[in-house]
Design a protein around this nucleic acid. Structure first.
Length: 574
DNA sequence: GCCGTTTTCGGCCCGACTGTTTTCAGTCG
């Protein structure tokens, strides 16, 4: 059985190899767009063999539809196999190296037989690159630097780390230059779960002064490049930060441009072009006479093209520009809509804070309620609560609720066993306000068994929420091999919510699944998975991810006021 | 390879920077 990721990556490999071969760049672009489209369709693409049906998706025509169908039937794409016979597949790794693109990769392969990054490094160190057509000693040096940079920077940065570092930078700049206009841009502003580097944009009357201060911030380890409009530094943690300064009347256009994403910007300029407009980082212009229509603020940039302004989190070319054109952009859920948190551990199991501390912090965050979900007894490694301990905790919670403060819900994070069974007897489960059920073991089981376990758990009337549904830990553990289409479908049928676990290295469900959950009407429950009181603030990143998944307040259970929530919990879910 | 309120052929986003060149190719975001 194939996967969406594999199928999409096959098209990316075809694009890479075609590019190295020197095929027409628009053909290459078409393959890359197809890969994007496939990822946005999701798993249902794997069930479609009919070429006509496949062609209905944007960017998929005769040729690519046939290849998808071929993959669905055979698990392979013959065209890719042919390309692999023509040249080594390892060559695609060279394209990831900064300062090295398809033309140079081909040249190095043809002239020096370079097939891999190791070959390349050897060739550069032996000074065999300088002297090739169009390549001199500087390019050779830059390629070596690029290899080093790539190896040092292999892991991307988690969103919260990037957000915090950029916060320090912005804070430092604003303190030194009161009145400075500066913002995050790039994938950080779009709140992607990981970011490669940090982009900061600013406008200031003296760019030189700003650059001086930027390059001298205490966080700076080394200045990589320093110019009047663009500088790059490396932080002590080894993160690259790019700073750009623009004129005030270009601010909006520059912010739009540097926020991206690239596919979003490409689509935007296509739309502009059809309207006789040109858009770049300086503004929006009439093509016929060059007249400038907008540029000072971002909203006016979109407005000049007859578009609403999509929130940055949506700018991935997943339909947001069409919605902006039709005036149907969603009203996304915001941090201010959140009335409580569904997933919190205390020192009773594997957390570090007391019920009281958690309640106090929840109060400071403005919450009306908080779900206490310590681990259940079958999870010994996390000191899961025995029946007598959970009964004690329920009593402690009821007692605390008699005092003023956020309402604590007595709940539990149950374990989904190998046959989909959960912890505790029926009478204990009936005492609890709600439960989350999560998979904590057997990650490597077959797809069928994992899916069956989850479906079984959802059919349990006491289970209101499935916790961290794909089980991934970003950069450390891949998602379980679970049939998410089946899980989403059954969640919709049983009225079971899926968690968006907001712990920084989980962010599980990921945005792509949130989009599908929303279409199926599956409700999403945000949980910080806090193990300390400070962790409750991770909700911020959960909300950001929810926004990337186009979720509106009614899609998210955390927007319910206490009375509404209690009423919802009293009603049987199915 | 895709696509069509100017098109079934001839287009397909835009500009900056770098290093190598005396006019431009390659790379990047």
């Amino acid at each position: 059985m194939g996967s969406v990721d594999e199928l999409a990556s096959f098209f990316e490999r075809i694009a890479d190899l075609d590019e190295i071969k020197g095929e027409l760049r628009f053909k290459v672009l078409a393959y890359r767009r197809a890969a994007e489209t496939i990822r946005s369709i999701g798993e249902s693409v794997l069930g479609i063999d009919d070429v006509k049906k496949l062609r209905q998706f944007p960017g998929i025509g005769e040729g690519i539809a046939k290849k998808i169908s071929e993959y669905n039937r055979t698990g392979l794409i013959a065209r890719l196999e042919e390309l692999k016979d023509e040249m080594p597949i390892e060559l695609v790794a060279l394209l990831k190296i900064p300062n090295l693109g398809p033309r140079r990769a081909k040249l190095l392969y043809d002239e020096l037989g370079v097939r891999s990054v190791v070959d390349l490094q050897g060739a550069a160190e032996a000074h065999r690159i300088a002297g090739l057509k169009g390549l001199g000693p500087r390019v050779e040096q830059n390629i070596l630097e690029g290899i080093r940079l790539m190896q040092a920077h292999a892991g991307r940065l988690l969103l919260p780390q990037a957000y915090q570092i950029s916060g320090e930078i912005l804070g430092g700049l604003r303190e030194a230059l009161p009145g400075l206009v500066a913002e995050r841009a790039g994938s950080l502003r779009r709140m992607k779960e990981t970011v490669g580097d940090i982009d900061v944009l600013a406008t200031w009357h003296s760019p030189k002064q700003l650059m001086e201060i930027f390059c001298g911030l205490p966080i700076v380890e080394r200045v990589i490049a320093r110019g009047d409009t663009k500088s790059s530094i490396l932080t002590r943690e080894g993160i690259q930060v790019d700073m750009r300064v623009v004129e005030a009347d270009q601010w909006g256009a520059a912010l739009q441009y540097f926020t991206g994403s690239q596919p979003h910007n490409v689509r935007l300029r296509e739309i502009a072009k059809k309207k006789g407009l040109k858009v770049n980082e300086y503004g929006v212009f009439l093509v016929k006479n060059g007249e400038k229509l907008a540029g000072a603020d971002e909203t006016s940039v979109y407005e000049a093209m007859g578009l609403g302004t999509p929130p940055p989190e949506l700018r991935e070319n997943r339909g947001e520009l069409e919605a902006a054109l039709e005036g149907t952009l969603p009203s996304l859920v915001g941090r201010e809509d959140i009335a409580g948190d569904f997933h919190v551990h205390t020192q009773a199991s594997d957390g570090y804070s007391s019920l009281e501390d958690m309640r106090e912090t929840a109060s400071a965050l403005g919450y009306a309620w908080l779900g206490i979900t310590d681990h259940a007894e079958n999870l010994k490694v996390a000191r899961g609560l025995t029946t007598s301990k959970i009964l004690d905790q329920i009593e402690a919670i009821r007692a605390l609720n008699r005092k003023a403060g956020p309402y604590l819900l007595a709940a539990s994070e149950l374990n989904i066993g190998n046959d989909g069974e959960v912890d505790y007897d029926e009478d204990v489960l009936a005492e609890l306000d709600f439960t989350i059920a999560s998979i904590h073991g057997g990650f490597r089981q077959e797809r069928e068994q994992l899916t069956r376990r989850m479906v079984q758990a959802m059919e349990n009337p006491h289970v209101r929420i499935i916790g961290h549904p794909t089980g991934r830990v970003i950069g450390q553990r891949p998602p379980y091999e679970v049939d998410m289409d089946a899980v989403l479908q059954r969640a919709a049928e049983t009225g079971t919510a899926l968690e968006l676990n907001s712990f920084p290295d989980r962010l599980d469900l990921a945005d792509e699944y949130l989009l599908r959950a929303r279409q199926l009407g599956v409700k999403i429950a945000l949980g910080s998975d806090a193990h300390r009181a400070e962790h409750l603030e991770y909700m911020f990143y959960g909300v950001a991810t929810a926004r990337r998944g186009w979720l509106e307040p009614e899609d998210v259970l955390n927007t319910m006021a206490l009375e509404q929530l209690l009423e919802w919990l009293r009603r049987p879910k199915m």
